[in-house]
């Protein structure tokens, strides 16, 4: 997920916090590297940077209390809350009557949930796109009879080439399905009778026609067996 999408998601979370807690007037999030991650439109970047600088100044001297986790400034006309959320810091300015404990709980739940969700989305590998099936075709049955017809069906060269381009391999077998539901796998060849080419036909040996319970002139669905 790119940084912009991340920032937008967090900005929406900050907006939701404001909706839930109208006492919150301004809010933004910054990273431990002091970079602003996301913020509301009310707080200009200069103010955010000054705030981060102040926080950093305290943080640099806070080793003695085991690193800085939160910094609260309670004024007569409002309060500013800085607290760590996962690997980031959340800065909030709120009215003097804001319930700090409630605010802390709400922000923690919302921001942590959003951050976890973003992490999950980011770390989840994109599922591989399944290869598309070569489109099946409906073809008109023509029967092949005689001793030497073999057991291969015949279809147009163009269709075999189209499937081969699509699948990036030549098609040697097809699945033929009758409308009655009978289906079978057959070897496939090009139609060798030039008069029957390009007519959307499939020439099927009589024996296979019986298996499929189809007759000359009926429609069957044909697709490459490899898919």
């Amino acid at each position: 997920m790119n940084k912009d999408a991340y920032a937008v998601a967090l900005r929406n979370a900050l907006t939701e916090i404001k909706n839930i807690c109208p006492d919150v007037s301004r809010s933004f999030i910054f990273g431990k590297d002091r970079q602003i991650v996301s913020g509301d439109s009310e707080t200009d970047e200069e103010t955010m940077e000054k705030m981060i600088s102040s926080f950093q100044s305290v943080a640099e001297k806070a080793d003695t209390i085991g690193s800085l986790k939160a910094f609260y400034v309670n004024g007569k006309e409002g309060k500013v809350i800085l607290s760590d959320v996962n690997d980031m810091y959340l800065a909030l300015a709120a009215s003097e009557n804001a319930d700090t404990t409630y605010l802390h709980s709400i922000t923690r739940v919302i921001i942590v949930t959003v951050l976890k969700l973003l992490e999950t989305i980011t770390s989840t590998p994109t599922p591989p796109i399944p290869p598309q099936s070569a489109p099946s075709k409906q073809l008109v049955v023509d029967t092949l009879s005689g001793f030497f017809v073999g057991d291969s069906v015949q279809i147009d060269t163009e269709l075999l080439e189209e499937w081969a381009r699509f699948l990036r391999e030549s098609v040697s077998e097809v699945e033929v399905e009758a409308f009655g539901g009978e289906a079978t796998l057959c070897k496939v060849k090009e139609i060798n009778d030039s008069k029957l080419k390009g007519k959307g036909m499939i020439r099927i040996p009589e024996k296979i026609c019986k298996t499929l319970e189809v007759k000359k002139g009926e429609l069957v669905t044909v697709k490459p067996a490899s898919t």
Binding site: A62, T64, G66, L68, S83
Partner: peptide, 19 residues
């Protein structure tokens, strides 16, 4: 400094939390 930045008036108290 933070109080001046966010105009929250005279500071009543400051809480610094560590680990």
């Amino acid at each position: 400094n933070i109080s001046a930045m966010f105009e929250i008036g005279e500071v009543d108290s400051i809480i610094t939390e560590g680990e």
